[in-house]
Structure formats: structure tokens, C-alpha cells
Design a binder for these strands. Sequence first.
RNA 1: GGGCCUGUAGCUCAGUUGGUUAGAGCGCAGUCCUGAUAAGACUGAGGUCCUCUGUUCGAGCCAGAGCAGGCCCA
Length: 1166
Amino acid sequence: MPPLHRLDLPALEREWLARWQQDGTMERYLHRNDHAEERFRFIDGPITANNQMGVHHAWNRALKDYYQRYHTMRGQRQRYQNGFDCQGLWVEVEVEKEFKFKNKHDIEEYGIAPFVERCKERVLRFAGLITEQSKRLGYWMNWDNSYYTMSDENNYTIWHFLKTCHERGLIYKGRDAMPWCPRCATGISDMEINEGRKEVQHTSVYVRFPLQDRAGEYLLVWTTTPWTLPANVAAAVNPDLTYAKVAQDGEFYYLSKDLVPKLAKLRGKQHGDFQVVGELPGADLVGWQYTGPFDELPAWQDPSRDVDLKGTRPVPLRDPLVHRVVPWKDVAATEGTGIVHIAPGCGREDFFLGKDEGLRVIAPIDENGAYIAGYDWLTGRAVNEGHTDDKGHGVNTLARAIMDNLKAKELLYQTESIQHVYPHCWRCGTELIFRNVEEWFINMGPKDDPNHQGLRYEIMAVVEQIRWLPGFGLERELDWLRNMEDWMISKKRYWGLALPIFDCAQCGHFEVIGSKQELHDRAVAGWEEFDGHTPHRPYVDAVQIRCSQCGAVVSRVADVGNPWLDAGIVPYSTLNYLDDREYWRAWFPADFITESFPGQFRNWFYSMLVMSTVLENRPPFQTVLGFASVLAFDGSLMSKSKGTALWFAEAVEKLGADTMRWLYAAQPPEQDVWFPQVPTDDEMAAAQAKGVPVRLNDSWLQIRSTLDKLWNVYYFFVTYANIDGFDPAQHTVPPAQRADADRWLLSELQETIRLVTEGLDDFDSVKAANAISECVDQVSNWYIRRVRRRFWKSAMDDDKAAAYLTLYEALVTLAKLLAPFTPFLAEAIYTNLARPHPPTPSPSAMERGSEMGSPLHRNGEGLGVGPLSPSVHLTDWPAVDPALVNPELRAETRIVQRVVNLGRAAREKAQLRVRQPLAALHVRVPAVADQDRLVRLTAQALDELNIKALKLLPPHSEMLTASVKPKMAALGQKYRTQMPKILAALKTVESDQALAFAASGQLPLQLADGATVMLTPAEVEVQAGAQEGYVAAEDRGLVVVLDAHVTPELAAEGLVRDLTHLLNALRKRADFAIEEHITATVVTDAALAEIITRFAAEVREETLATTLTVLPSDDGTPPELPAGAITEEIAPGKLGGHPATLAIARAPKRATPRARTAKGDAPATK
RNA sequence: GGGCCUGUAGCUCAGUUGGUUAGAGCGCAGUCCUGAUAAGACUGAGGUCCUCUGUUCGAGCCAGAGCAGGCCCA
């Protein structure tokens, strides 16, 4: 049975995407506030236009959309500009994959110009796809005005920034040790490294370094990368560890004391017994000198071949030809020998240590991983030289050669095979090495500067002016800024910002060009070749300028820029900083940005902060909302390479965009979100074959429950409004004349508006979403339960109209509050209820059940819902109407709800189903105010519980016991150490003593030690409980006691209600329309037949039966039933042990649609 | 190795300035309610509040030590 009433979001969304397209709603939305005074300044962090969207992108974009939509409804002017990040290695890598390029050589063979073109094409292709997918998400932006970081203005604004940096002397050429793939001849970024780690087996070596001036004594050193030994310049020890001097074979070794036991295994056959002959702190070793393992190589003998460290923080080299022991606190006592071989040209940590210690930097390897000149027999050999042996094991012949060489020199102590996780190139699988390469940097200034001078501290001052959400973001960014190294802005690649740096090879002077015009003015060659092209390689490379110092002709450095320059400049470039300063001033800084936290502290947030500090010394944004990561349904990381990533396109058609948007709205942004499992393709196909929306799993149902409940409420409203032909414009009932329940709901609605508004003002979508959920829950589970009978009655009097109007106003308001979060659902509900001239829904939509069967036609102004609009997204944000706020009614309803809950609990204990009417409910209410409240709304509680009378219990009722309950905070404050005795004594207080205390306000208490204390109501409270033997339930002093006695008359009424329920259930199963009339027949025993006959009028009314025939049949064999009737045999257990068979059939149509009596709510008394 | 954070029910998490017998949602079991409901209500089972030591009349909360995990940095 395809239920029209089941919410099918994907279908509904497709319908609305088409409609919005047709009537240009988004365009109107984008321009509705064009002339508004107030602005909401949002800057979009550019999405990488390199792939289709994943579900994690939907979180990002949904958050952006919530707040922009909200501020639009608040009437604020916005730019709605989306951004695409276009330049960088990630694009190159994908293009390389497409063309099956293996390395840079392949690219250069193909040609840089066409390669760059392919990169641009790829970016545009995916920008287009992302645009379409974003629209599918319901993300409303000015899609024709997206910015691209590869644009001229973006690149030239970065030039301006770099020139400004240079004018402050911040740009320098330096060196960095970076992971390097010798096969691809390229550096590997940290992020890429994480993708390529795997466990491998290597041969590690233990080498002995002969100490100078200590004949026969050696440092024992361990390394897993023998190829770095020719670049050794130092050995590091931990000054805080204890080292041992070990005697063996007439010689002495130094190593960490903790690692001495390892020698037993390591000595092998080559070495004899050993013994520890002395201990000394690591600090004592520092400064010792030793003979290096490859001192004979020309490279070691000639320091002029060393890496030029010009530009780095200068630390004078000490004794360039000497190897020495240096202190390093990071040396661990758990691995190797506790003495670490240091080669600053071959490792990152080594490099930093070398900088601090003023060590030589010997970089022995070229970009293909082979030794450069000066390494004698090693020159030209690659560090990964080797082959695979018969058993399939990799054999590194270079490592073997080095070991043989060391052995010959009697420096090799031992080798050891180790299994460890080692970085590999994620593209080609080659083991990575560390290379020292020349790069360009922005100087961030010293760390730990006591005077807080330098760019680093300027940025930190800017950061503190920003509101970080969640709060830990501020500390995290500051932490990064305190510890960051200088910013490396260059990369030796092709597709990216052309760094406008001209480095004179002749005199060493370099210049930074700040604009296209300046480049034009300075150009001495190559302008014609460049003119007409974007500032990208290779064309911009052709332009040459004259060195202002020596007059030589200089080319641009070949490097491209770090891609975070591209994104970081956006608050300037996209706001026309260079061309239209007025415009920039109007839109800068951003009020709000939001991006995923992981990474952005040192990426986008960081680059914006650096650039804005240098250019204007101002925060580029005032509030930043960070959010965490999207994990798979089981909490594991979603990974593209493992195939566990979930594409947006697939998820959105299975779940609906609004489902995802609601998930993210209610998700605390600082916590990772577990994205539940989406239906499989098979499930989708099966559902489609049956013509029903696919069944989502429980996790999704839970997430979606608010939307489903709202939809059901909406469906309820529309169903009856259509039966009644209800038109909200035709009725006016002032709130004061409406029933309590109506006025209560209107008050709840105001509270909801207040909370949602506060939440969105505060960038707290969770608070907003929770307030909406709470309200929907109250409408669905309280309001409608309370008032449904008013919709059932036949006459359209003021009472019925008031219920309609109240529910109508609630739905329209909720639709507006939901509009920023679930734009599709909100639009569907709003337009059907409130749009002045709704278009007819397309037949396909009606078939799929995405749309209500008959839209409500409305004309004129809405009542209590503001001016009507063709789209909820063009309406104004609802405002709280103080006249409708009613805290007293709220409190009244709350106490009723508490009593109802207790009444249900008591019924559960007594096994008395709710359909069984009971005579009385006795209630003890602790607070007098609450008692009055309950009395006023007694009818609601009784109706809900199906009980005929509510009786208030006096404190001394025989149904109650009184007990005393200590107020710990007050008592403890006063009596301290006497507390255990007092608590013990309080437990012995009897009910009548408690009642006496309640009357007198004084509780004398005899303690175990004979002392007496006098306790007061401030220290002890009296609480009522139920006397044993009564069916009762209690909660914080509120007690309800059921009169559980079921008289024959009550039992009969209960049976009648059961029968009514069964008949109605049968109607529903038989698919009878709600307003359809039936003829009913009941076959049952004589006893039940008598009862039904007695209550026949009521049964007929409740089941819309024009006739009710009761046929007694004691033997259970039914007499002849009406032909064509739908019959059902009822298990006796369901009707108090009476056997029965029911039969219903459609009755001829009558004029009145529905004729039930309204019970429950009394009319308004005020 | 440094910094930050987290250990509470099967799962995900709340838990106010220290206050009796530690809660919610989901899941599980049972009962009920329902002609809007893929909804809802009630009851129940389920706990060494990571461990130890201390402070206190009283510790999930405070202090110290340890264990385990996460994130960031190196």
C-alpha cells in the first residue's frame, strides 16, 4: 500500500528544485535585500574543485547555508559568493593520473603549457559539478558569481601581498628537509605522507664511531638508513639519560645504560663477553669528538660543497671538519643504542637540530635519489638501488655496499633486521627519503621572544580579537602560532601561483614584483610572449627583468606558490581590495566564516591571518565556527583510498538533502558525527519496485523523527482541512477567546521563536534545532492529542475554527523556523498552507506522495503568520509576540503533564489499560500554586487518563505517608561532623512525626549520642508518599493514587471503548476514508451483546456507523453476515474474554462529513 | 618527547559551586496508546563513575600518583 502520507524527501526535493528553477525563487531570494542597510558579511572558504562532493562537504555547506538563509530572512544584505580552490599539487596529481604520467619528466615532455591547461580544465569541470551538487543540497548562492583562486585578481593580489612582505624584509630563501620521492622527483607533503605509510623490513646497522683522544673507545650508534651515514656530522645523546661504558674484546663502547642488556643478543659470534665498567650522564659526553665513518670522501673534506644556509637564522659553524657529540633531549632510551646518528642534510629532525647546533649540512642526494659528485665510489648510485631476489625479498645493493665498506674499515659492529612502518610514495610506492632543498619562506620572527616582537606576535594579537567557536579554537590557533616555523611558500611544481620572485644568479639580490603593471614596467624581455595569458607557467616564466643591483637579466624563480596563499588572500581579492577600496571597506571583515577544524588552524585560518595581518593588521573575520569530521556509521574514518568514503550524490538521492541538513543542524560542531548507513542499491530498487520510499535504518529515523512528526502533524491538518473545506482566511478567533490548549501552544511557539532566534544569532544551530524539535514534539504528542476531537466534530463553530487556526499558525511558523535548515520541507509545508496562489502540483509528485493531494487555497493576508509570500524563503523571520507569551499557562500545562505521566505509571502497575475508564484519581500536589494550576486544567488530565474525577488529597490522608528528606547542602553546612548521626536519626522518623513537623515547623531529633537537635524546614523537607496497598506513583512529592475499583458499569464502558477501537482499526486496515460512513455488525455472546446494545449510539458515533447490528451467538458460530462485508474474528482476550466477530461495509454517502462529539478541552474561560 | 583533551549503562553522552539511592537518548524486554504518526507513553533489566592514595561529616566532581585512549605539535 503506497502511503501518500509517508514523507518522501528525495522525491519532494526533486519536485521543488524544478519548481524553484521555474519560478526563479532563488533569484528573488538572492536579491530581496539588495538595498538593505544592514549587512551580513560571510566569506566562503574555497572548496577544492578537484572532485565531486562527499557527504562531509555537505556539513560544511549546510552550516554556511543555515546562517546565510537566516540572515536573509532577517533582511540583511549579503554577497552569497561561493569560492573554488583551483591551484596546487592535488590538481596536478589527478591530471597526472588521468594521463598516466609517472613523474615530472613525463609532464615536461607533454609540455607545461598544455599540462597547465589540463589542470584548468579539470578545475572548471569539477567546479561545475560541485555547483550542481550544492544546488541539490538546497544551498542558495549566487552561483554565477563564484570566485576562483586561479583568477587573475587572486594571483595579482597575492603578488601585492608578497611585495608588501618583501618591503618589510620578511621574504627569504632558505632550506628545508622534506620527504622526497626519488622516482617521481618531487617533494611529498605531510598530508600525502599519511596516505603512504606501510610496514616493511629493513636492515639496520650498528656502527662504531672512534672517539678522538680516547684510543680504543667508541660511540655505538644505530641507524635504519645506512645511506645517510656519508652525510653524518654529529652524534646526539640525551643529556638526561645515563650512559654506560662497556668493555668488550679489549675495547670500550659507549651506549645508553638501559640498552646494555641488548648487547647480549647483538654481540653475535664476532664479539666476546662484555661488562659495564663505568656510568656517566649523557651531558658528560656532549662535546666529545669522533672520527666520522666517511671522512675520506671529498665532500666531507671540502666544506664549500655544503648546503648554503644563507638566509636561515645564522648559527656560526663550529669546527667544520670535526664530528662531535651534541645534546638532544628527544633521544629515547628505548631504541637503538641511545646515541643517534645525525645527518642534517638527510632528515628533518636532524636538520632542525643542526640549525640549533650550528652543524654542517651535507646534502648528498640529487632529485632522483642518487649521490652527487664528491662521494667517490658512491657518486651516481641511487639510494634505492637494488633488485628483488628469488624469494621475492627486496635487496638494497647500495645498503649492502655501504655495510661492506664499513666492515672493511672495521666500523661495522653488527646488523639487525627490523620491521617498521616507513613512509612510501602514495603514488608509486617507492620508499621516501629526506632531502634538503632550497625553498622560499616568509619569516615569522623568533619564537619565545620576551618582547613579543615580530610578525608572529602581531598575528597573535589579531587572533585574540576573533571569536572562536568552539572556544578551544583560540588556544589551538595561538599554540600553532607560538610554535610554527617560517612559512614555506614555494613548491617545485607547475600548476599554481607564479611566485613573483626574481633571484639574480649573478649578484644574489632578489626582488619581488607586486603587480602586473610593475612586471610590465620592469620587463626587458618576454612580455609579448606573456601578454594575453593568465599569470601562470609557462608564459609568465618568459618575462625577464633587469636586476636593480647589478643589471643582469633575471628570470622568475621556477617555483609556484603554496596553495594556502591562494585561499588566504580571499578576504582581499574577492572584495576588490586593490581596485575598489570602498567596496572592500563595506564588506571587510567577514562577520562569519565556518570550516572544518582539522587542518585549518595551520591552513586557511592561518594563511588568512598572516595575510591580513601583513596587509592591514586587522582580523579578516570576526567569528569562526569550526566543526569536526564526518566518520562512517561505525565510527571509522571515511577514506577515499579505502573506498569507505560516501559521495554526496549517492547519499542525497537515498536520504534526501533535508535529512542530511537536519543531521548536521542538530550535531554539536565540535564533535565528530557518525554518518549512519545509507540504504543499499538493492534496498533502493526493491522500494522503487513497490512504489514506496525506501525504509531508512533506525539511526536515520531517529535523526529524521522531528521532520516526520512535523510532516504527520501537517498531514493531519491538511486531511481535516480538506474534509471541512477549511480556509484560514474565512475565520478569525482572537487568541483570548481560544481554548487553553490553543493559547498554550501559541505561547510555546513564542518560546520556540525566541530560542531558535537566539541560537542562530549565536551560531548555535544545535540550540535552534533542539528548540524546534521540542516544539514539534509538544505539538504532536500533546497539543494534537488534546484537541483532535475538536477537529472531528461536525459544526464549524468558533471552537473548531480556533483549533484550526492555532494549528495553522503553528505550522506556518514552524515552517519559517525550519526554512534555514530544511529548505525543501519547509517550502512544501509553507507554500501549501500559505502561498496565495499555489500552482497545481504536478501529477507525478502526487503519485509519489511527495505532495499533499489537495493544496489549501489561500487568499489575502495571513492571520498571525505575517504577510503571505510565494515562498517561505522570501518571508521575514518570525518575531516573538509578547502578547501571546503565557508563563502561567505553561506552568499549568506542565503540572498536568506530570500528573498524566504518573497516572500512566500507576495504570501500568495496576495493569489497568487506559481504555478502561476509572472512577477517580487522587492527587497530592506539594506546592499550593501547582495545586491551583492543576485544578484549573483538571479536565485535560482526566480526559488524557480516561478517569472520571480528580480528587485532591489532604496531607494527612490515609492513602499517604509522610517522610522527611534532608536538604543536604543546608544541613551539612551547619552540622558538619554530626551529619552521620543526624542522617541515621532522620531515617527513624515516622509518618506522624513528619506530619507534625509539617504543621509546627520544628523537628526535634534525638541523636544516638543522646544529644538533641532541632531541625527546621530550611534543613528538612516533608515529602508525601503513597501508603502501601494503594495503586500509586510518585515523583518528587507529587503523588497520584488510582481508584482501581472497576465496577460492572465501568467495565462495560471499557468494553465499548475496546470495541470502538477494534472497529476503527478494521476501518483503517480496510482503507476506508476517514470521513466514510459504514454499516457495522458485531457477532458476540449475549453478555457483551447486551452491553453493546446499551451503548450503541456511542459506538455508532465513534465509528461513523449508520447502523450497528448486534447478533448474539453463544456457540461462536456466526450467523450469516452481510454480503460483501469485511469481517474479522476477534480473539476473546481483546474484549474482556468475550468472543466476537466484526463486519463492516461502506454505507451510502451522507451529507455531514463527520459527526463526533467534542470532549476534552473546556472552552476558554478568559 | 612536549602540549591539550577524554575515561560514567551494551552504544553515544549529560552530570551545576562536593550533598542521601548517579541520569538522558538509542538499543533490549514487557505493557499500553493511536483513524496524523516510520510517532508516542509507562515499566523493567543493565553501573567497581579507569585504578590506587589522599583531603572532607560527605567525592563521579577536589588533590597526588598511575593506567588506557584521542587530538595537536615535534
